[in-house]
Nucleic acid binder design. Sequence first.
DNA 1: TCTGTATATTCCTTGACAGGAATATACGCG
DNA 2: CGCGTATATTCCTGTCAAGGAATATACAGA
Lengths: 101, 101
Amino acid sequence: MDATIFNALAEPSRLKIVELLRVQPRSVNEVALLLKLRQPQVSKHLHTLAEAGLVTVQPIAQQRIYMLQPEPFVRLEDWANSFQHYWDQQLDSLENHLKKG
Amino acid sequence: MDATIFNALAEPSRLKIVELLRVQPRSVNEVALLLKLRQPQVSKHLHTLAEAGLVTVQPIAQQRIYMLQPEPFVRLEDWANSFQHYWDQQLDSLENHLKKG
DNA sequence: TCTGTATATTCCTTGACAGGAATATACGCG
DNA sequence: CGCGTATATTCCTGTCAAGGAATATACAGA
């Protein structure tokens, strides 16, 4: 798993943007208005999200509509899910540490 | 969703630590040796992970065994999973943008 | 209590990054 | 082409966090 996606989501404003775009695709100004952020910062954040592969752009006239990209979120879900297979084993290992120590 | 968990996982070394601890709980030195990091940095990273609620500590003599905490990963999986319900709707909304402009 | 091992903490320096302000670019329209 | 709208980019500055080095703390055993 690459840390890039986590880095992109680590910034509170960016996380809010993602949760906004989850509902529906939006233009830069729409995001700025809804989150009460300045347009340049929103552009920068969306750029970061795009570089991380979390969003894509669809130009419409002068507007640029940003929408989420499914794939990274699927990867994220799979990654988080893969941890479930280890919890039992973890407890066993801890007991080993406690006994063998 | 809180950005704290993403922030904790955004640092490459910390992400590696998490993926190590996924296999089994480990002491600070074990992590340091396996990842070829210095002990103080590992302690710091583990402290950050603990503050984010991703790991817990189990002291054994002088050693401190760190292990993952399931709950945050379950939350993360649920969050990522919740995005799946929106993709179809997203495409519809984009089309609306394209038509209505 | 002294020693060695395991871990945590502090101080310092440096790089990355976010926000603000200003400006540049893209595009449609008259 | 000139103008207005929408968005991107640049420059600057302050903050924060990571790594290195040194040191402090915790604990077990002789």
